[in-house]
């Protein structure tokens, strides 16, 4: 049985990444993540791979929520894409939150999901492969393709280049 401290630590570590992950499919991402943590708390024993387990539950919950949203609205426009910002705006960051959100939203879902699960969720490509039903090499290939597409859109300067400029 999981204690409140352990649950609190897991929420700190994974909640934000899971909300971002769930936004790929549905608008009520926070509700989906909350339900996932409640399911985790109800488990008798903690899963071996908590991050993978949480991502799987959130993915299933988000897909179900997306189906329910589609039924309600009777049109296919992705609610997730209407979200103004997926990230907290901050001037300290090298990337603008709004620009990054827009660039990510333009990626195909199969690439975006892998990028988010790896970069913010901290999942390995093997875990992502298990989660999405593809091989780890395919997951890695899609990840690189997604990054290449983002590089074109975001044009992040290399740290060495900025040093040279200085």
């Amino acid at each position: 049985m999981m204690g409140p401290e352990q649950l609190s630590r897991l929420v700190d570590n994974y909640a934000a990444a899971l909300v971002l992950y769930a936004r790929q499919w549905c608008a009520a991402a926070e509700d989906v993540v909350q339900e996932a943590f409640i399911k985790l708390a109800a488990q008798r024993a903690l899963p071996d791979n908590v991050a993978g387990w949480l991502h799987r539950v959130v993915r299933n919950g988000a897909l179900a929520a997306a189906r329910a949203e589609r039924r309600r609205r009777h049109h296919e426009s992705a609610a997730a894409l209407r979200m103004p910002n997926w990230f907290v705006p901050s001037e300290e960051m090298r990337l603008d939150a709004e620009t990054a959100t827009a660039a990510l939203q333009k990626l195909p879902l199969e690439q975006r999901e892998i990028l988010i699960a790896h970069l913010w969720g901290g999942l390995t490509f093997e875990q992502i492969g298990e989660l999405t039903g593809i091989s780890s090499s395919t997951a890695h290939r899609r990840y690189l393709a997604g990054l290449a597409a983002l590089r074109e859109r975001l044009r992040v300067p290399c740290p060495n280049d900025s040093k040279k400029e200085k």
Partner: peptide, 21 residues
Amino acid sequence: REITALESALRELRPQTEALD
């Protein structure tokens, strides 16, 4: 190098969790 820089820049971004109570 550009890919690595992009990865670290993306990781800096903090996902919005305002609605998560």
